[in-house]
């Protein structure tokens, strides 16, 4: 960690502390153990290991990613993940080319292994879906070409 990120993260932490003490946030909302570090990680491996506890995964064709080959507008890229794998515990979505690759993590509890949402992509890159199934991580990826970026600007 360099000096800049250290400063940034300590600032953010104190901001949260102030908000809590000011009663702006109820403990219920804070407790959700939001993996802030994972969302701020700059590469997929770091993001994955801090979100799921492990950065390594096996490739699996059993995970289906439905996303456009070419996204005209990177700020709205529809992505649908479904899988035939059994005992799916969570689905984590990453966009490798984003400044912070982690997009979202869905913990599934008794629900079907299906999630559909819309994500932002900064530029052309892989959309990676990591599925935690029976304690193991499986992943598949799909490249999406982005003509207009949706991050920064």
């Amino acid at each position: 960690m360099n000096r800049r990120t250290l400063l940034k993260s300590s600032l953010a932490a104190s901001a949260v502390a102030v908000a809590v003490s000011a009663g702006l946030m109820t403990p219920v909302q804070v407790l959700a153990a939001y993996p802030k570090a994972a969302f701020e990680a700059k590469d997929s491996a770091t993001a994955l290991s801090s979100a799921l506890g492990s950065g390594s995964y096996e490739h699996s064709d059993g995970i289906k990613i439905k996303a456009p080959d070419i996204a005209e507008n990177g700020s709205v890229v529809p992505v649908t993940i479904s899988t035939a794998l059994a005992d799916v515990e969570s689905i984590t979505l990453l966009s490798e080319s984003n400044a912070s690759p982690l997009v979202a993590s869905f913990k599934l509890d008794g629900s079907q292994a299906y999630v559909s949402t819309r994500i932002k992509m900064g530029k052309t890159g892989n959309v990676v879906a990591v599925v935690k199934s029976a304690g193991k991580l499986f992943a598949n990826k799909k490249e999406v070409k982005v003509t207009i970026g949706g991050c920064g600007g």
Binding site: S95, F106, K107, D109, G110, Y114, T117, K120
Partner: peptide, 24 residues
């Protein structure tokens, strides 16, 4: 009253988010 989906999101989800999921 049974949690079927518990998600954490980053800023990379699009504006006015859309979410679809399935359960039995």
């Amino acid at each position: 009253d049974k949690t079927v989906l518990d998600a954490v999101w980053g800023g990379a989800i699009s504006k006015n988010p859309y979410l679809s999921f399935k359960y039995s």
